[in-house]
Amino acid sequence: MTALAPTLIEPSLQPNITLVLVTVGLVATGTALALDRSLVRVLLGMVLIGNGIAVLYLVISGRAGRAPFVGEDPAAISDPLPQAMVLTAIVISLATIGFLLALSYRLWQISGTDDVPDDAEDARIQRLALEDQTSSTYDPSEESTTTSDELAADDGSPRAP
């Protein structure tokens, strides 16, 4: 198998155009979905991007060959290393997607929607900037505005309602 590595850096490695196009299509669609507001669409986008990258590993493993078993002619088998890597990556992304599904279900349970929420802190700073005011921390006479996430973090019991 050591013999495989040098052949890969030879310029004879011709990328499989079909697979490249499939990768491009999957990643582009995935990116478009991931830019959406809804977490489920983001999740689907991530699935597509992950699959696109899995196909990319088929591109880099070079020409297709026989299954890489011991005893096969080393010249006839396909490069096993990218397959090992992509299998690992697929398993990891499966687990992460599962977790993200659970997260979006919980988000829906809590807020009744699966939209990714606004950044409350960002909005607060923008409002202060628009009003040309300093943060209330500097001016005790000013009515206070505390970040909603710090308030939420103060909540000692993160239990389900």
Binding site: A34, L39, V42, M46, I49, G50, I53, I92, S93, T96, F99, L100, L103, S104, R106, L107, I110, S111, V116, P117, S148, D149, A152, A153, D155, S157, P158, R159, A160
Partner: peptide, 23 residues
């Protein structure tokens, strides 16, 4: 941990960004 609203919101951003960087 605990699955409160604030943590789910924060966790969502975190997980998606991490997924992207892993990709």
């Amino acid at each position: 941990l605990g699955g409160s609203a604030a943590r789910i919101h924060a966790g969502t951003t975190y997980v998606v960004v991490s997924l992207l960087s892993s990709a």
